[in-house]
């Protein structure tokens, strides 16, 4: 890896905040997501996911701080709009236009739009080009939106809740199409989702937002190795919890299950206790249930800083 240029960032936010009226939708958000990842942005409804993504594509302007994409381009600048494709929630396509017209529209609004590729994909998906976008099924509409976004030949793709209105089959097909594109084009992807199941299969970087603040951010592998489930006697649980950053503390009768952020360090496991790996979904849910806990790796050297109580 010697001689490798400083890794450029897909998304970089510092002190980023957005206030609507008197409510902060996003507050003091700091993120440094390297290029080349498939990033899942998860969090409950109203946690600020859409706000963050809208800030990243220039649909909203920050109240505080700044956000840059794709190696330092100001979010929403013409340079950024050219290399970052955005698929809005519920696709935001024109329902009264036919698929062919929608394609033509997108071609005329972008330089270097790959019409042939878009048309081939639409044909492959068996979507009649003459059909109105409003008459398509949710899955088809999502596929058309993805097709338009990819035909821009972006270096980064940002999708806001692409799966929320899709049935399981359409969801599977959509993710398959997205993953193929990632593999073929090597683009960075950031997508938001309030569905935490099956994230492991699709994303390799995770950001958890809660109440407008970044709670967890990091590569999935790192996060998984830095969290352990401690199972042992409930009587000793308090003593153990005092020495380790506990994300979730669940006790049942004599047994305690502590989800601990070990920060990757080998820690001495007390006698009478067992440790297990945790799944991504379990970990995410634990964080969502414990809004006060956080795991923010930030710059690498800071890994190891314990979770704030």
């Amino acid at each position: 890896m010697t001689g490798m240029p400083e890794q450029s960032l897909a998304l970089e936010a510092s002190g980023l905040g957005k206030r609507y009226g008197s409510t902060w939708a996003l507050r003091d958000c700091g993120l440094s997501i390297p290029e080349g990842h498939v990033v899942a942005l998860v969090g409950p409804n109203g946690s600020g996911k859409t706000t963050l993504l809208h800030l990243a594509v220039g649909l909203a302007t920050p109240t505080t701080g700044r956000v840059r994409v794709q190696g330092g381009l100001d979010a929403g600048s013409l340079e950024a709009l050219e290399c970052v494709a955005f698929v809005a929630q519920d696709t935001a396509l024109y329902p009264s236009l036919s698929v062919a017209d929608m394609l033509h529209l997108a071609r005329n609004l972008n330089t270097g739009f790959d019409s042939a590729r878009a048309e081939a994909r639409i044909a492959e998906l068996d979507i009649p080009p003459t059909r109105k976008v409003g008459k398509l099924s949710g899955g088809q509409r999502a596929q058309v939106a993805l097709t338009l976004a990819l035909a821009k030949r972006p270096r980064q793709l940002i999708l806001d809740e692409p799966l929320s209105s899709l049935d399981p089959l359409a969801r599977h097909d959509f993710m398959a199409a997205l993953m193929t594109a990632v593999a073929e084009d090597g683009i960075s992807v950031i997508f938001s989702s309030h569905v935490v199941a099956e994230l492991e299969r699709v994303c390799d970087y995770l950001v958890v937002l809660a109440s407008g603040q970044v709670q967890v951010a990091g590569e999935v592998d790192d996060l998984l190795t830095s969290h352990q489930l401690y199972t042992g006697p409930a009587a000793q649980a308090d003593r153990l919890a005092a020495t380790l950053p506990v994300v979730r503390d669940r006790r049942a009768e004599a047994q305690a299950h502590l989800l601990v952020r070990t920060s990757g360090r080998r820690t001495e496991v007390p006698t009478g206790w067992e440790t297990h790996q945790v799944g991504l979904e379990e970990m995410v849910l634990a964080y969502l249930r414990a809004p006060a806990a956080s795991a923010l790796p930030g710059p690498r050297e800071l890994i190891g800083k314990g979770a704030r109580p």
Partner: peptide, 14 residues
Amino acid sequence: ESGTHRFAFTQGVG
């Protein structure tokens, strides 16, 4: 009103 500004305003043309 229809939310399509999210499409229109994020295209390369600006």
